[in-house]
Design a binder for these strands. Sequence first.
DNA 1: ACAGCCATGTAACTCGTTACATGATTAC
DNA 2: GTAATCATGTAACGAGTTACATGGCTGT
Lengths: 189, 189
Amino acid sequence: MGQDLPVTSYALLGLLTFGDELTGYELKQRADATLRFYWVSPAMSQVYSELARLTERGLVLTRGGGERSTTYRLSAKGRRALESWMRGTDPGFSVLKHPVALRLLLGHVVDTPTTIAMLEAHVAALDAEREALVQVREGLRGADAPGQRFRHPGLVADWGLDYFDNERRIVTSLIERLHEEELQEEGDA
Amino acid sequence: MGQDLPVTSYALLGLLTFGDELTGYELKQRADATLRFYWVSPAMSQVYSELARLTERGLVLTRGGGERSTTYRLSAKGRRALESWMRGTDPGFSVLKHPVALRLLLGHVVDTPTTIAMLEAHVAALDAEREALVQVREGLRGADAPGQRFRHPGLVADWGLDYFDNERRIVTSLIERLHEEELQEEGDA
DNA sequence: ACAGCCATGTAACTCGTTACATGATTAC
DNA sequence: GTAATCATGTAACGAGTTACATGGCTGT
């Protein structure tokens, strides 16, 4: 034991449990494709520094150091570390940083049409993100059947899609609520 | 102009737009009560250092400096800064750090019952958080009618409650999916 | 030849946290 | 009296970002 790494380290370590061997660059791409929806996509430079730390602690093994590209794979020690982290530590609660909700909270500072425009832009962004996640989900077809070893990413992607759908629904209804108020106020004026 | 503060600074500044005057301690409590659901609750020490910076830039005014407790209120300049931030800058997309989704993604590393137990604990945590938000929502009764000046916090709280409800629903269904797979596997063995 | 992607890192910096330190006021 | 809450800060640190720097390889 005796390791306590930030969650992002374990997340990157976890991306190396899918049976393949990646360069730092490829690991970053994998993080961009899937991790970013539920966690964060670390900067390129952080991927390399995390890999250096994981290597130092013997949790990953390198191949081809010195040449143009180095690949990384999970070590037995790394697998044990990941497993004991998953079994033995409390995940903690999720943290949401939602700039649109924050600005809606402060809606009295600006006029209603400005707030409505912001929410409409958010719906558009939501659609774009959803579409990106759909692409990821498509890429998992075949590996996602019950009993398949790597079926979990498919489950999480479905979770994410459901989240997007629900958020779209509620934001749309908030827009309507604000629209009705607008009409009311115009009636008063 | 020439100010570019982190979002958290504007968030704290925004909490001072509700017509009252607060101590750092009270501001922290307000952040704990509402901001934490959509953004973050900064540490006590950060609240004080942010207030110091906002004061330095003239965005908030202090009363009673030197005595045991100092209160802070929004300045005209602070209001303009907040407004131009809300109108003129892109909110950006929300960031979700979801340790439970992350661990579900890596479900192949542990056994299914462990994953199910984690999801069940998450449902319990969700219920507790929801209940805390219900309390906040109750405190907003009266200020939340259409046309009321400070009705937006009520809208955001409703959004948050809907989010919790939806997440509970999907996590529960994920638990069922995993349960069914478990039974299937036992049948095979 | 040139653009774009693959690949790897360093340096400086900011945000935000935890730990520490202090003391007044209030409730029991 | 003593525990909890109110109130304010400092110091050290870690996580993560942006900007910078470098160079090979690939397609057109």
